[in-house]
Design a protein around this nucleic acid. Structure first.
Lengths: 229, 229
DNA sequence: TTTATTAATGTTGATTTTACACTTACTAAA
DNA sequence: TTTAGTAAGTGTAAAATCAACATTAATAAA
């Protein structure tokens, strides 16, 4: 039995995470100011190297947790980037993952310690290496994924208003949606629970809060569906 | 300046190709009987290792060319597979690509020399490692991609009949389609040229041959469109 | 010239999507 | 307590798309 493929070249394998969050200002990503060479002081995605005894999904989870303290986050592998000199230090192939997090839940302390910051998609700074490309790619994927599975909810707090949901979808798709049509489409999916509670922040009248109907939601996650917005 | 990230582990990076072809019997994939250890004699996807001075896309192109002699083939990166023991010999991460080829064009000689064979999707043999999973993944992606871009055409000869196109889509989606509705949808895309020539193989009446309207086709490739079949 | 075979073609009813504006519920200020 | 102001909540009709369906046309072989 062989114990190596002797002639093949080994490379470093990195994981970079595009972390999406959402608040009243719109869709955001979490970036970090590098405090090591190369490109010290520039903005970058959060990332790290794959360990010998670790699968890629776990590396992505570990990296996300290291920088935000979060567990149980929706993540999805995106793409492997392999340009020869994408990292000038050493030949490194990077596999990108995107994550959707509820922006209220992350650990502010940790983020500060790592010099990480949230940036609106529109005015994010220029990033190192091919990270700009990764972000663009992630946004495209998020748009598509949103239209086929109801993952957008991952970005909202547990209780949310219809307005918040609408604005989230508008931010992801970057287009205006018709309020009435949106609401009736969402309702027809039957994945929400309407609570008796109202959110009084936004108006005198107050607007009803919703949570997910977990069971229905899981079904929809399983069987692809189409959400034409 | 650093010249290595000293603490990180290096790994082998492989590329595995799911090569789709299409003929009158339906959708097929090209498999190879391994003539090296481990798993010598078992069926596998064609693959190889990434070289130090090569990007992943080029490795996929090289591998496809090595085994089939083909150039200029539609390929798309699918996913990175990283289970710890997916390859028992050495820690190997594999990035899969799928390719669509016109089954008539490949080099028969080469395929024979490599002990490669075409198998119908339905009755393909069990494959080594996680290659079965890769194939399933590729079929899902092909179905989706087909519905959003007209890539299916890559699988047909230059001149083809409406029936061939219909059967291709039926094979990809594995469901029956209504002939009249299919034809009018395809026509409404305006990406085909109807030739004066007829194919007389299939009937006494003969059926018109079509080619692509390259310009329109490129436009559609650019701006995603939806083809609801 | 008849027969057999596959190609080519359009219409209608059902469903889905889009566009669009007024009333309701509540709070705060007068 | 009345009034004014604000966002929430709600339905319909026209347009577009989708799905189901059967007959005629062209040709080669008998």
């Amino acid at each position: 039995m062989l114990n190596s493929y002797s002639s093949a070249d080994k490379v470093l394998l990195a994981v970079d995470c595009i972390i999406f969050g959402f608040d009243h200002q719109g869709l955001k990503i979490l970036l970090i100011k590098r405090d090591f060479e190369p490109e010290r002081g520039k903005w970058s995605l959060i990332g790290g190297f794959l360990k010998r005894d670790e699968i890629l999904d776990d590396a992505a989870i570990r990296i996300l947790n290291t920088y935000t303290g979060l567990h149980d986050i929706y993540m999805e592998q995106l793409h492997a980037y392999s340009e020869i000199d994408r990292d000038p230090v050493d030949r490194t192939i990077s596999v990108s993952y995107y994550a959707l997090i509820n922006i209220e839940n992350h650990n502010e302390e940790m983020i500060k310690n790592y010099h990480a910051e949230w940036f609106s998609i529109a005015d994010a700074p220029n990033l190192i290496f091919d990270h700009n490309e990764m972000v663009q790619h992630a946004i495209r994927r998020l748009r598509y994924r949103t239209s086929i599975k109801p993952i957008g909810f991952e970005l909202l707090p547990e209780k949310f208003t219809m307005r918040q949901l609408l604005e989230l979808y508008e931010a992801i798709l970057s287009k205006e949606l018709d309020k009435r049509n949106f609401i009736s489409k969402i309702n027809s999916l039957e994945i929400l629970n309407k609570l008796d509670e109202k959110d009084m922040q936004s108006s005198r009248k107050g607007s009803y809060l919703y949570t997910f109907n977990k069971e229905k939601y899981e079904e929809k996650l399983l069987n692809d569906f189409v959400l034409n917005l």
